[in-house]
């Protein structure tokens, strides 16, 4: 009996020690959670953008996140609109950042600020669309004009070179004033020119109206549509829902943008004809990589093109096995 009591006492004392240790450790962990992973880095970069919620931007940031530690740098995002562009550029200069990445719908419009940065010794990289009138150090991006031409070619292939094409612009194509939009639309018209029976019926912006409503309006109109080009992966999902509802899957071809799991699945099931894939992550990675090179005063090319990939059922197994 006495042995059992002693054993029980030992077990209780041991339990008390373990519980105390766990509890105190839990409290101390709170401090660790607050400052965990807080490390000072060598470089401080600022990203200036006018859209932070698009698929392209999110992928772009994912690319930066994947490489930022390797370049011993930190970054912060300034959103034009929340704060004025003058204030942002002013703050960036006062906080003495080591480099600026401009991902605006019209980088060229901020040429004077870019020049001011350069005058203060801050390196500048333009992303998405170039700022040829400025002293920017580097441009990294896809050729939107070529992308538009490629979209037109895919539309011709999908419709056997004859039909009417509706375009729903989203993602980084904010409005008709954006440089990227101009380039893409110009490329699209240029591509359509090659096919007599292929024409652009309408161009809509999903930043103004949700894609479902746009498609509903298009399909409810007098003109028949054979192809829909979507530049935002989210819009592709919305368009597909409408087509399914209207039982028009297959009769209207869809040219998508991106390689999200949903789009890959649509292609596999022949719901989407093809998708143009811009590697936004690569865009983020390269922007940091080249900014770092510039800070290290290495010689870099002033124009870095990100190639466009076309995802079709034919090559799906190769790209997404």
């Amino acid at each position: 009996m006495r042995k059992w009591i002693k054993l029980l006492e030992a077990v209780i004392v041991f339990s008390l020690i373990v519980i105390s240790f766990i509890s105190i450790n839990s409290i101390n962990q709170l401090r660790a959670a607050r400052y965990s992973g807080s490390i000072d880095k060598a470089h401080h970069f600022a990203i200036v953008t006018d859209e932070v919620s698009s698929y392209a931007f999110n992928k772009f940031i994912e690319g930066i996140d994947s490489i930022i530690d390797a370049h011993d740098a930190v970054f912060e995002v300034y959103e034009v609109g929340v704060q004025s562009s003058d204030a942002i550029f002013d703050m960036i200069q006062l906080t003495e950042v080591d480099g600026v990445i401009l991902k605006l719908s019209n980088n060229n419009a901020y040429s004077s600020q870019i020049n001011s940065f350069k005058a203060n010794g801050i390196n500048v990289v333009a992303i998405g669309n170039d700022a040829p009138e400025s002293d920017r150090d580097l441009y990294v991006g896809t050729n939107k004009f070529q992308l538009g031409k490629e979209a037109a070619a895919l539309s011709a292939l999908a419709t056997d070179r004859q039909g009417r094409v509706a375009v729903i612009l989203g993602n980084e194509y904010l409005d008709d004033k954006a440089v990227a939009t101009n380039n893409f639309v110009n490329g699209l018209y240029e591509g359509v020119k090659d096919y007599e029976s292929l024409s652009i019926s309408t161009i809509q912006y999903s930043t103004n109206l949700r894609a479902e409503i746009i498609v509903d309006e298009i399909l409810g109109g007098t003109e028949t549509i054979d192809v829909i080009i979507c530049t935002d992966p989210l819009d592709v999902n919305r368009v597909m829902r409408v087509l399914v509802d209207r039982n028009m899957v297959g009769s209207i071809k869809v040219i998508a943008n991106g390689n999200t799991p949903e789009i890959v699945e649509y292609i596999r099931k022949n719901l989407v004809y093809a998708s143009l894939v811009e590697d936004y992550e690569e865009l983020g990675r390269l922007s940091i990589e080249y900014l770092d090179k510039l800070n290290k005063e290495q010689v870099v090319s002033s124009y870095i093109n990100i190639p466009i990939a076309t995802l079709k059922k034919d090559n799906l197994e190769e790209v997404h096995p």
Partner: peptide, 13 residues
């Protein structure tokens, strides 16, 4: 310093 913690980076700013 140029901390990777957003709050500390903001304090730096």
């Amino acid at each position: 310093g140029k901390s990777n913690d957003p709050s500390r980076l903001q304090l730096h700013n």
